[in-house]
Amino acid sequence: MFVINCPHCNEPREEEEFHYEGEAFIARPAEPETQTDAEWGDYLFMKKNPKGWHWEMWGHSAGCRKLFVVKRNTANHAIDGAWTLTEARAAYDAEMAKI
């Protein structure tokens, strides 16, 4: 029952307006046909399940229907930011670069 700031509607909204779309930044392999079964299986099934900060996609189902990225702490539901899909990549890359 948290609140998410929809980066498209530009205001905080109740969780009920959104749906969860899973881990963010799982890119579809450019050439699926060249993937081994194991590689393809990783793409399909292997998801991070961290206790702590998690980059994930949410959809504003009751609002603008856009998908966007949220950085959420799975342990306490703290939210560190929400970005449009285009903005999110830079924020994510910047954080990954720090690690």
Partner: peptide, 22 residues
């Protein structure tokens, strides 16, 4: 609706919940 109608100023339209629909 879960939306805060105090935030629904004139000139604003929001998509939000109504009961279990939107």
């Amino acid at each position: 609706t879960v939306y805060d109608l105090n935030a629904l100023t004139i000139g604003k339209v929001v998509g939000t919940t109504f009961g279990k629909t939107s």
